[in-house]
Design a binder for these strands. Structure first.
Length: 463
RNA sequence: GGCGCGGUACCCAAGCGGCUUAAGGGAGGGGUUUGCAAAACCUCGAUUCGUCGGUUCGAAUCCGACCCGCGCCUCCA
């Protein structure tokens, strides 16, 4: 049984897809006004784990992620840089895709853009007005939250006790109730706008998700994800719109991941700790180490990104990689050890059971480390055989379909000059000329090649 | 003020009533192996789970109070 913590009910619930073995997944995507930062990627990696696990369990997953390419921030940025909105958004859309590839995040099936769904949004707004849940004021349209009696069910907010924030006081938008939210914003000088059946203007933020999730996935969908900060108001408002529009539930499951903090404190531009993937790549950090760090903390817990936690992740990942490297580079006698099959089965059970329990990644990883130790023991005792090695390797490949933390098998080739050096060193070692041998080893280390001597001969890896 | 999250070894972190007199990873000490390294293996490491009470045959796990850190409460994943 798979269970997930559903924000809607505030507890873990058994997961059943609406259609057998098919999951319709909608995840809130980026607003493309800047490079995404690691906090954003924390959410995308959590969603990636969720999706990969569902795939692993044999579900077909249809995954839609929206791209917000028109809103206050994108407009402001374009204005600031004196370029068109599209120039800005195209640039950051490209960067976004490059980044998720770098982090080994599986692509969604569809990435609908807000600007390509303007007529549908206008249509939904119109329908909401006709149903009596929305009103027009000074060219803009607002959702009347007093009409939607379930308002607040996701965020557990009492509609009548919503505090009026200072920011709402401005008369920029003229609403009946301070907490009514904009469905459609009237055309303003200097801002992009679209001519639609409800008049000229541009969409509010929440409406795009309602429109695009329903258009591509139908209603209700199985799972809707995002960061905790999206619970209110974004997801709450999506529910209000969609459930009013279709008289159906929007999503059965709402999963939200917690925030990422940096060196123990919140990310913010002023602190300069809002790292992008590019910043980190410039520091020479392996993206898969970042993936491991973001992945290895349970999604509903805060994760702390720091030099220290990064190093720890690096070392942990290194343990897995070294293990596989041992298997790959040593030679083993023919045959098999019956113990190994049992260990693998136990590991797989623990691995999937753990992830089935609201994506308990810590326990899932533990199961892998336990297997590593057992196999290492057998290896040290010469009790591991060729077939065992093959079985372990293919199991890790399988489990990595869920984790995505192992480097792709690109058969690294050594340059001829380096090969020569290695041969030279082997010769020196045979002659017990260790000074020369060490000298060559240091020399290669500087070039990023690590040499290790084993019973089976020298092996090398890149730093 | 409202809603919510968290406090477990030096660090990260699982466990959420007896299977655990607390997993796993990192860092560290000692040992084996090695020409030396690296990797690996063995071993050491919380009588204790923020504090104080309570419930129970039994609590890190349930209840109460308190202390500390954090998030959200109109556009931030």
């Amino acid at each position: 049984m798979i269970q997930f913590f559903n924000t809607l009910s505030g507890k873990k619930e058994p997961f059943h897809s609406i259609q057998a073995k098919k999951v319709r997944l909608y995840t809130c995507g980026p607003t493309v006004y800047d490079y995404a930062h690691i906090g954003n990627f924390r959410a995308y990696i959590f969603e990636d784990l969720l999706k990969r696990f569902l795939l692993f369990k044999g579900y077909k997953v249809k995954h839609v992620m929206n791209i917000t390419d028109v809103d206050d921030k994108t407009i402001k940025k374009a204005d600031h840089e004196g370029v068109s909105l599209k120039q800005v958004t195209d640039k950051y859309i490209r960067a976004f895709f490059a980044d998720i590839d770098t982090l080994n995040i599986l692509r969604a099936d569809l990435y609908p853009k807000a600007t390509e769904h303007i007529p549908e949004m206008a249509h939904m707004v119109k329908a909401l007005v006709e149903k009596g849940y929305a009103y027009k004021k000074n060219g803009s349209y607002y959702f009347d939250i007093s009409k939607f009696k379930d308002y607040g069910k996701l965020a557990k907010i009492d509609r009548d006790e919503l505090k009026t924030g200072e920011r709402v006081e401005s008369d920029e938008y003229d609403k009946k109730n301070a907490h009514d939210f904009a469905l459609w914003k009237d055309k303003k000088p200097g801002e992009p706008f679209w001519e639609t059946e409800i008049g000229p203007g541009r969409p509010g933020w929440h409406i795009e998700c309602s429109v695009m999730s329903t258009k591509y996935l139908g209603q209700p969908i199985d799972i809707h994800c995002g960061g905790v900060d999206n619970i209110f108001p974004h997801h709450e408002n999506e529910i209000a719109q969609s459930e009013t529009y279709a008289d159906k539930k929007l999503a059965h499951f709402w999963l939200h991941c917690h925030h990422l903090i940096v060196e123990g404190s919140k990310m913010s531009k002023s602190k300069g700790n809002q790292y992008t993937l590019r910043d980190l790549a410039d520091q020479g950090i392996d993206p898969l180490v970042i993936r491991y760090l973001l992945l290895s903390t349970h999604y509903r817990k805060m994760v702390n990104y720091s030099d220290k936690t990064l190093k720890q992740s690096q070392s942990s990942l290194e343990r897995i990689r070294s293990f596989l490297y041992e298997l790959k580079t040593r030679s083993f006698a023919e045959g098999e050890n019956p113990e190994v099959k049992k260990w693998i089965q136990d590991t797989e059970k623990k691995f999937t059971d753990s992830l089935s329990d609201d994506l308990n990644i810590s326990l899932a990883l533990t199961s892998l480390f336990e297997l590593i130790r057992e196999i290492n023991k057998l290896m040290a005792n010469q009790e591991l055989y060729h077939n065992d090695v093959r079985a372990v390797q293919s199991s890790f490949e399988k489990w990595d379909q869920v984790l995505g933390i192992l480097p792709k098998e690109d058969e690294d080739q050594l340059e001829a000059s380096i090969k020569e050096k290695i041969d030279q060193r082997n010769k020196a070692r045979k002659e017990k000329n260790y000074d020369l041998a060490d000298q060559i080893r240091d020399e290669l280390l500087e070039k990023g090649i690590i040499l290790e001597d084993t019973k089976d001969g020298v092996r090398w890896k890149k730093k």
